[in-house]
């Protein structure tokens, strides 16, 4: 059916919509911006063009793509001791946690994160330090402290849970 489109010169003929068929030129229509570079995504964020076919696979929310790194970062050229981290396949769960932890560090002057586009599981974290410590090391330190804090929370919970169970058996 598609073969009987007749070209007149260089111009395709006006679309004639047959029943159940998309008009001419709509056959490869994408529900998105297949080749448009989206300025919001910037460099090193996931796919360069927002190529939205249909529903993306859900595992793309948490599985790193081929060759994709969990974290990359670039130093900022105009501001000293500042870096922009890009976290792939992560969301507010990690972004807000790190941001908050970093902003409590005495060496960190600035820490903020954004999710550039809600359809991509990516967030960007900008960190500026006072120079005592590199932004990268500030993030590593924040992660280490959080792991320790979670560990003590885990132990605290275990302790309380065991105590509660002992109290329950004593009551029963």
């Amino acid at each position: 059916m598609a073969n009987d489109i007749v070209y007149e010169g260089d111009m395709p003929r006006q679309a004639k919509k047959r029943s159940g068929e998309l008009p001419f030129g709509h056959a490869s229509y994408h529900a998105g911006y297949s080749t448009v570079k989206d300025p919001r995504t910037g460099p090193n964020i996931g796919p360069q063009n927002l190529d939205i076919d249909t529903v993306p696979d859900r595992y793309e929310l948490y599985l790193l793509g081929e060759g994709e790194k969990k974290v990359t970062f670039e130093q900022e050229t105009r501001v000293p001791h500042a870096a922009l981290f890009t976290f792939n396949k992560e969301d507010h769960t990690l972004g807000n946690l790190l941001r908050d932890k970093l902003s409590r560090s005495e060496h960190v002057l600035f820490a903020a994160y954004q999710v550039p586009h809600p359809l991509f599981a990516v967030f960007k974290l900008r960190v500026q330090t006072d120079g005592e410590i590199a932004p990268k090391d500030a993030v590593i330190q924040a992660c280490n402290e959080l792991v320790q804090e979670l560990q003590s929370l885990d132990q605290e919970f275990t302790k309380e849970w065991e105590l509660k169970k002992i109290a329950d058996t004593a009551n029963a």
């Binding site: 969990k70 130093q75 870096a83 993030v139 590593i140 992660c143 959080l146």
Partner: peptide, 25 residues
């Protein structure tokens, strides 16, 4: 407990990845 360890694992991945990078990234 599973929630805590999953979150720790996430942070561990970040540490792991960042330690493989220089200060310049």
């Amino acid at each position: 407990h599973a929630g805590i360890s999953t979150l720790q694992l996430k942070l561990g991945q970040v540490i792991q990845q960042l330690q493989g990078l220089t200060v310049e990234g």
